[in-house]
Design a protein around this nucleic acid. Structure first.
Lengths: 206, 206
DNA sequence: GACAACATACCGACCAGTTGGTATGTGAAC
DNA sequence: GTTCACATACCAACTGGTCGGTATGTTGTC
């Protein structure tokens, strides 16, 4: 029985927690090792550098969230619009616990590294854009069904991620999930208005 | 009164540029001094600590942006809704140049410091919330005029900031302003739909 | 000559990364 | 079926450099 890389996984888990609470630059390799209960030798056995760990953490994040959303209940709806709205409700339901527990790893990391570390930036972009892509099909289908034009599904999918990332920033600034939930409500309202049955616009006001 | 704190202002200017490109933790006091062309003695003459500089930078940011938006042309519109939409167009017009030049200082800083430095977090919150408050009156007035109910002006004002902050994150991840502009377009569309003349709301399944 | 506005020199702590090891497992030659 | 060559999975101690911060000048102004 090999010990098979338990240290690696412990280091990545420690990185997720530390980076989400204090950011990437403020997290030292020593602290990560202490949190994971391994030595520095183990760290550099598995990761070529601190940056390398960040990329691995982003990739792991993509896998984790990918599974979480793939197994989420909102996919069961037959109506694609219900799946999109269900996605938003699911995101809202995730706003539990302390702020570092529901905020986004890659959204945090990309802010600190986008100009100075192309690899980390690319890994974060892949995570965000990849997740948006899983929404795009449902949005496109809903658009077709509801005859929505003048908006691209890809753009709307990315916009949902922008709202979520921005909601996290406000949650961090205000120290609670409340604002974030309200922003998701606004996003939901936007999508509902966008997909509402066609009406003649420009009617007189009441 | 000749020199009158030129070093202080140079340090703050250097901090704005450095923190917006690489974040707060990754910016060292030495680097700031080098950028500003002053010595460390000057730094600690004006700021008690690195954290103190961050708070001063956030406050300066609030003043700077406060003036910028106070003098912006969108206030001239008579219709409050036009002022709100004008604000969004103004924000879009600001998306010029490299990413660090149009992204938000306090949005970047709060991500790294919200859990570990209450003073910086508070200064960033004050900056964001204070700016949102300047929008709130116009939104409230527009809501009254257009008979919009079920949404609070304060919440919608904060949502605009969430969208902008999120748009900046996507811009950083993707390395360009394009996504950010599209997110602002979505926000504009949301507000237009929200304020459009009353029609029967509520989605009907096709 | 007092004071603000800096500059110079330096400190201990901590940083990312390196070195040289040990304990354990694996495949294949003989 | 034992031995040997090599690989994997770690660990402890260390290095050169950087960190935020301080102690002590120097200089121009009133």
């Amino acid at each position: 029985m090999v010990r098979e890389g338990t240290a690696r996984q412990k280091l990545i888990d420690a990185a997720l927690a530390a980076i989400r609470t204090q950011g990437f630059a403020a997290t030292s390799v020593d602290e990560l090792c202490a949190r994971a209960g391994v030595t520095k030798g183990a760290f550099f056995h598995y990761f070529a550098s601190k940056n390398d760990l960040a990329v691995a953490a982003a990739d792991h994040w993509s896998c984790m969230t990918g599974e979480l959303f793939a197994q989420a209940p909102y996919h069961r709806h037959k109506d694609p619009l219900d799946r999109v709205l269900g996605y938003l409700e699911f995101r809202k339901s995730l706003l539990k616990g302390a702020v570092p527990e529901f905020t986004c790893l890659v959204g945090t990391m990309v802010q600190e590294t986008y100009e100075t570390n192309p690899d980390i930036r690319a890994a974060c972009d892949a995570s965000i854009s990849g997740h948006a892509a899983t929404l795009e099909a449902d949005i496109a289908e809903a658009m077709k069904e509801h005859d929505v034009k003048g908006v691209s599904a890809a753009s709307l999918a990315l916009h949902t991620q922008a709202v979520l990332q921005g909601a996290f920033i406000l949650a961090k600034a205000k120290g609670g999930a409340g604002v974030a939930a309200e922003s998701i409500d606004h996003l939901r309202r936007y999508i509902e208005l966008l997909f509402q049955p066609k009406q003649h616009k420009g009617r007189v006001k009441s």
